[in-house]
Structure formats: C-alpha cells, structure tokens
Simulated scan of single mutants.
Amino acid sequence: MNFQFAHYNYNVINLEKSLDFYEKALGLKEARRKEAADGSFILSYLTDGKTGFQLELTWLRDWEGDRYNLGDNEIHLAFTTDDMDAAHKKHQEMNCICYENPDMGIYFIADPDGYWIEIVPAKSNTPQ
C-alpha cells in the first residue's frame, strides 16, 4: 500500500481575495474548482505548476464567523524560493510578512485569513 500527498486545505472567508493573494504572493493559480449545486461551498485547488502538490481553498456559504480559529499558528505550509531577496522585497511591499528569523534565513507571510506560510531558500540546510 502506497500513499502520496494530494492536497492541503485552508478554509477561507473571501475566496476571491484569497485567490488574488496566493497568485500575487506565491504565483499559485487555480487548477480546478468544484462548486456545490446548492451553492453551499466552493473548493478551489491551487497549483504552482511545477509539483503535483495542491492547496485547496474551501469557501463555505453558511460560515457565520468573521475568522477561523487558527490556534497559535504552529501549523503552516512552507515554500522554497530561488531568490530570497526578491521574494522578501515583494512580500514586504505586499505588507504580508508576519515573522522573520534572520538567524535561520527564513520568514513567514500571512494570508488574508491569517494562515502563516514559511518562505525558505531553495538550497538550504535549514530544517523545514
């Protein structure tokens, strides 16, 4: 029996705002979408176009909160980049950097719903 990663899910309050953020911040594009016939949910699967991994964004029509409870944000996705300086500048301009660890050479950005995403140099010995 073999298992492979398929996708990871984040629930989002505003799907269009999240889609815009993930495209601008990380270059992710919507690969496919599933919408409930009754309009109760939309699933949007984002891809980097290079790996098979997908990020599923779930929008729920009947969600009544204004935020999801993310706890202490210790659970996160990590992305590598081949140009940390350019990535950092871009994310700084987007005002989405929420935590930096210069000693480790990494930083985190936060999406519109407050999910943290770690940015790591592509060739790094830093534990991820």
Rank of each mutant, 00 (worst) to 15 (best):
M1H: 15
M1W: 11
N2S: 15
N2I: 15
F3E: 15
H7P: 03
H7G: 03
Y8V: 09
N9A: 07
Y10F: 14
N11H: 10
N11I: 01
V12K: 08
V12R: 08
I13M: 08
I13Y: 04
L15V: 13
E16P: 09
E16K: 15
K17S: 15
S18G: 11
Y22R: 01
E23C: 03
K24H: 03
A25Y: 04
L26N: 02
K29N: 06
E30K: 15
R32T: 12
R33A: 09
A36E: 11
D38F: 07
G39S: 07
S40D: 14
F41P: 06
L43N: 15
S44P: 13
S44Q: 14
Y45D: 07
Y45E: 09
Y45V: 11
L46A: 03
D48T: 01
D48N: 06
G49A: 03
T51M: 00
T51Y: 00
T51L: 00
Q54F: 04
L55H: 06
E56I: 05
L57P: 07
T58H: 12
T58F: 14
W59K: 14
R61M: 12
R61S: 13
W63M: 10
D66Q: 15
D66V: 14
R67F: 15
R67S: 15
L70V: 12
L70G: 08
G71R: 12
D72W: 13
D72R: 13
D72C: 08
D72T: 12
N73D: 14
N73P: 09
E74M: 09
I75N: 13
L77V: 09
A78S: 13
T81L: 01
T81M: 01
D82A: 01
D82W: 01
D83R: 00
A87F: 01
K89Y: 06
K89W: 04
K90S: 05
H91S: 05
E93Y: 05
E93H: 10
M94P: 10
N95W: 07
N95T: 08
C96M: 11
C98Q: 04
Y99E: 11
Y99V: 04
Y99I: 04
E100V: 07
P102K: 03
P102E: 03
M104G: 03
M104Q: 06
G105S: 07
G105Y: 04
F108A: 11
F108R: 07
I109G: 05
A110D: 12
D111V: 08
D111E: 09
G114K: 05
Y115Q: 05
W116R: 07
I117E: 02
I119A: 03
I119G: 01
V120Y: 03
V120N: 05
K123W: 10
K123A: 10
S124I: 07
S124K: 06
S124M: 09
N125E: 10
P127S: 05
